[in-house]
Design a protein around this nucleic acid. Sequence first.
RNA 1: GGGCGGUUAGCUCAGUUGGUAGAGCGUCACGUUUACACCGUGAAUGCCGGGGGUUCGAGUCCCUCACCGCCCACCA
Length: 944
Amino acid sequence: MLEKNYDAAAVEPRIYAAWESAGAFKAGAGARGGAPYCVVIPPPNVTGSLHLGHALDNTLQDILVRYRRMLGRDVLWQPGTDHAGIATQMVVERQMMERQEPNRRDIGREKFLEKVWAWKGESGGQIINQLKRLGASADWSRERFTMGERGKADDQMVRVVTKVFVELYREGLIYKDKRLVNWDPKLQTAISDLEVEQVETKGKLWHFRYPIEGRTFDPEDRSTFIVVATTRPETMLGDTGIAVNPEDERYKDLVGKFAILPLVGRRLRIVADDYADPETGSGAVKITPAHDFNDFEVGKRAGLPTVNIFDREANVVLAGNADFLSGVPASEELTASTAALDRQDRFTARKRVVEMLEARGLVEKIEDHLHTVPHGDRSNVPIEPYLTDQWYVDAKTLAAPAINAVREGKTSFVPKNWETTYFNWMENIQPWCVSRQLWWGHQIPAWYGPKKWQGKLSFFSNSAEAESFVALSEAEAIAAAEKKYGTKVVAVRDSRDALLHFVEHGKANDEIAIYRDEDVLDTWFSSALWPFSTLGWPEETPELARYYPTSTLVTGFDIIFFWVARMMMMGLHFMKEVPFRDVYIHALILDEKGQKMSKSKGNVIDPLSLINTYGADALRFTLASLAGQGRNIRMSAQRVEGNRNFVTKIWNAAKFAEHYDCRRVAGFDPAGAKETLNRWIATETTRAAAATTAALEAYRFNDASAALYRFVWNLLCDWYLELAKPVLNGEDGPAKDETRATVAWVLDRTLALLHPVMPFLTETLWQERGGAGLLILAEWPAPQFEDVAAADEINWLIELIAAIRSVRSEMNVPAAAMVPLAVSGAAPATAARLERHDAVIRRLARIEAIAAADRPEKGSVQIVVGEATYAFPLAGIIDFAAERARLQRQLDKTAKDIAGIGAKLNNAQFMAKAPEEVVEEQRERLTEASALKARTEAALAWLG
RNA sequence: GGGCGGUUAGCUCAGUUGGUAGAGCGUCACGUUUACACCGUGAAUGCCGGGGGUUCGAGUCCCUCACCGCCCACCA
């Protein structure tokens, strides 16, 4: 016996356990032939928790995977998690701070990493369990982590990354370079362009006067200074030049001359460069090559020196800064400003610089200025362009094949317009900075040792100047080093130990120490390898052979650049084949007001609480039905509640079947059914199956859920089960048996069609109804039966009942009243239909008896359906004026239709140019409408 | 500045080759029916953002304007 209501919370864990213990999620489970189908999960952050974006992403993947599995395909849904370098390291550091423990630099790398691994072990399972709550049918036995089991060198997931790095290095596609990077002063690491967010900020534009060398500064005499504007006064300490446009007449004679940098005294060469825009500001721009990307380029072109004034935390460092002092004659002013500004953070320094310049009359004006300031997407502090040595991937070279692959259709985006976004970015791609000054991540496989300088081996603390050995392992690096140096080589922990070692052994030259690059790789570097790393590469595993290229990638548009593009590049380079055939891009989830969900706004809807309240299936159905939306999805609990009602509706349909003892009949085939009603619902089942299948094949999840919703609620429940009641409540016999069997047959197929979207409910009912085996591994329904005549007949029946109900309601006929119905003008076929469906019409339309009549009784309400007129004699009950008005309204509408259609048919152009079938359709509509009009007129006349 | 979306019922959104405007929610009225009140029946509501064009015919194709949103680049 089915319970009164479906209890999702009680059922879901049990069903999930049943699937798992049956091995239903395992790669290839239940495969019955056909091509393999593989999806790799976008690995969530290992220590994260499930949000609605994950819920959407994984629901869609699960739908695809369950559908393919039921088709009998060899399915692998490859799961796993991401180590999420910065994010995870930040969480652990925050914990340490909250517990008032010593920070990571105090405890050192090894101890810190132990803590992160411990945290991973503690919270790493959470998100996987949450995915299970959602019903995700991934092959958990194959779960992978981007850093492997222990992050050790011999771990496959680590070997993959190392091998890729080393091979790209040897091919010249990874290199070390000294240039400006986006530096995050809070996290103290370089970040890539993509991790920088532009934040619109209300700032100021300061206009400063820089005295011209050799002229005595006089604020009243504009020939004694040059005005430059800046949004960042503090960086003036690093100015090394001034640029003006070569075409700018105002400054022509100043080119080649020098200005004197206030507070410092540095000589600034005035150079001509196109970068300076005469229209902007004063037309002269100060050049700070160490702290601005554009200035860096100008400085390079003009041969200006680079003066860095910041340390890693973006504090001003002047004292003892050789760059800052180079060539600047000591002066009282320099000493004073150095003392005042040294060790200030950049914002304090900014204030001080302005104050000091103002005191000297060097501030021309200060304007309000709206501009965008680059911020780190994790730290949320302004980033600094900072001159460092970093590792770069030659993305431009790798992008070329990745662009072509999409051009040639080897990989397709769905929806297709995302390809434009992909191309735009890929065609303008910049070198990818992959090194991070973090500890949690894949350590870069480069080792450094002393280098020959002026004839003898010297130790360089800057790794860029050291001898480097990029190698697959420490042993390999040592071997390479030994070959290079011709001496015994040992590996030590870090550059400090290497220096100590060098000091100790340098003289004897009997042993040389090398040390490993302390930086780690960008998290996205390992994510980029995910489609093949998870399948076992570099080993030639059977899984790799079978499932690569994978079939579909499902992800949000926000990580097309971060992830999709990079997987394309790496996949093509190392596997010589695209990583996936289709990329399905879905929208992002917002709250019901269209706001991005965030903890600070407090508008986050937790998918787990939705699952707890409404059940996983209701959430899944909701997400699927919203998936068609373009850019963003507005989510509210109310929608989920509505779909929970749909879950209940299905549950009650199953209860109906149980109540009327509708059991599955082995070998039942609707083709042998005699009852029109049964032939009709079988036809509709075929159509629903076809619609659902087509929608899923096309990634139209919303169409699939809409088709299922409509079929189940509006056809199966609203009509078929209602229409079947008279038979099921009637006498035993073949018609009843056939109807019971049909109900069971339809229900079974319906459950199967619903299963990918609503796995828990459908599996529960499948089991309750004594289904053979598990629904998850059952066959996807593809009924072929179709009977157009039966469909026509039942549609006529539905139309008739609906029309009677409508009129009853409009005429305020009490719902309980049983009314006689008189039919006139019915053709023999219609009369036969009325006879066949007599019981149903009487039941559903509350009719006492149906009788034929030559003409409706005077004063009765008349309904026109098809060629016949149906009347209930309601004299005395009904309001004649209202009835007349109703008929008149119908007449007006019909007349309007006729006029419209007539205009078309009388239009010679239309007749000449429209396709024959369209013309024919209009003719039919005209015939029908004319008939309706005639009968309505008759009814109106008869009413008197 | 470059690119991409959006503007359809009170709300949130569908609308796939151009051929009678749809759904869910909400609203209103009525509830007879032993699957279901997490329900049933019925009803109301649309210059499909504005303008122009192509076409026999445009929510759908083209141009243009307005507003909203996102992405990329840049801003001394």
